[in-house]
């Protein structure tokens, strides 16, 4: 992946990340809700979003 494309992908991930709501309950379990596509997930069921390496 070239640098420009990688940066664009990172920007897109950030937008999605910012539009995700998380509710963490008293028993420490949590759920996520995407205001982008209105999907709800158990917290562990989501792939962790990490910033891509830019070199």
């Amino acid at each position: 992946m070239d640098v420009a494309l990688s940066y664009a992908a990172w920007l897109s991930q950030q937008t999605t990340d910012n539009s995700t709501l998380q509710a963490t309950f008293n028993d420490a379990s949590s759920v996520l809700f995407s205001t982008f596509d209105h999907e709800t997930h158990l917290s562990g069921a989501e792939a962790e979003i990490t910033e891509p390496d830019v070199d």
Binding site: A23, F25, N26, D27, S29, V31, L42, S43
Partner: peptide, 8 residues
């Protein structure tokens, strides 16, 4: 049940 499971 965990609260998250109950939520779902």
């Amino acid at each position: 049940l965990s609260q998250a499971d109950a939520f779902m």
